[in-house]
């Protein structure tokens, strides 16, 4: 246990170094922009990975929390002249509150019924974003969201936003790590193993599931907040059912129950469309094929799959 947590500390240290190095090495604003999207998607994926990988609960409506984070902050800053930082707490708070209210009845469901319950919730929130056009600007979207500032430094300029997002990613990684290693983490794994057995030995499975659900909603809202202030424009289309599916795909492709898998999945599925530009009209076909092939041949996700191949080639 201690050995592995030491390894983890080293890995997180290495990642910190890599993030700093990438910030210095990549001087092209396009690359920085892509890295920012990877960072935002990593935060999203980490939260969902905790829920899916460690408690075995699926959510097909997580884009709702992503959207709540983005829209709350956007509405407060655009219509009510909040400063973005002051809007951070209400937007995270609202996501947590909604997650609590929705989570209590929804998490009693399981399997496909849970999938359907979360899907329905996601659809309703999406429609609310679309129809409350007085505040949200409806389908046309909400423009003019102010950028984040520290003092007089505009974080949108240069690499500042990159450092902010990846700072948040590293923070999230450390907190997730802590959570998994803790008593909560052990309880979570017991729920994944067998919910009934966990209940029998006195684990309050409902409470733990709810805690993780709320935490993942919190992270999704944080990602949404960063997204809204990064682009300066949001529209409901970014938070629809397909966005939720994309998040689940990132978790599964990277590898469930692994924070490094989340990082890999988010990076790969953010980069993939950028690479697939070259395929033009064939892009969808190639994207669909890659998803299918990865799952057919590396069902535990790319991280585990690549490690297996590496180990086999070393032993051979």
């Amino acid at each position: 246990m201690t050995q592995s947590s030491l390894h983890e500390t080293v890995r997180i240290g290495l990642l910190t170094g890599a993030v700093a190095a990438a910030g210095i090495l990549f001087d092209n604003a396009y690359h920085i922009q892509v890295l920012v999207f990877i960072g935002i998607n990593t935060i999203l994926t980490l939260g969902l990975n905790l829920l899916m990988g460690y408690t075995g609960q699926i959510s097909l409506g997580h884009a709702a929390f992503y959207g709540i984070g983005a829209y709350t902050s956007a509405i407060l800053t655009v219509h009510f002249q909040f400063s973005p930082w002051a809007a951070l707490f209400p937007s995270l708070g609202l996501a947590v509150l909604v997650a609590l209210i929705v989570g209590i009845p929804t998490l009693k469901l399981s399997g496909y019924y849970l999938a359907m319950g979360t899907l329905g919730f996601g659809m309703i929130v999406f429609i609310v974003f679309r129809e409350l056009d007085f505040w949200t600007g409806g389908s046309s979207g909400l423009a003019g969201i102010p950028s984040l500032k520290i003092g007089s430094v505009d974080l949108m300029s240069g690499r500042n936003f990159y450092y902010l997002v990846w700072g948040a990613v590293l923070g999230t990684l450390v907190v997730s790590r802590r959570l998994i290693e803790s008593r909560v983490g052990r309880a979570l794994r017991s729920i994944h193993g067998s919910e009934h057995a966990a209940m029998a030995i006195g684990v309050n499975t409902q409470a733990y599931k709810l805690q993780v659900f709320v935490f993942s909603a919190f992270l999704a809202a944080l990602a949404g907040f960063l997204y809204a202030h990064c682009i300066g424009f949001i529209s409901p289309g970014s938070f629809d059912f397909m966005a939720s599916v994309r998040m689940v795909t990132m978790v599964v492709i990277g590898g469930m129950a692994s924070i490094w898998g989340a990082l890999l999945g988010a990076s790969l599925l953010t980069l993939l469309p950028e690479w697939l530009h070259a395929f033009a009209d064939y892009e969808m076909i190639v994207y669909g094929l890659i998803l299918m092939l990865v799952m057919i041949f590396l069902p535990q996700g790319l991280l585990r799959g690549l490690l297996d191949i590496y180990e086999r080639s070393r032993n051979a």
Partner: peptide
């Protein structure tokens, strides 16, 4: 020419690619 698929996020990464790359 890049494809936005009508998606604001894809359009943003497209424009930063056009401008900076």
């Amino acid at each position: 020419i890049y494809d936005t698929e009508g998606d604001p996020q894809k359009a943003v990464s497209g424009i930063s690619r056009l401008i900076n790359k």
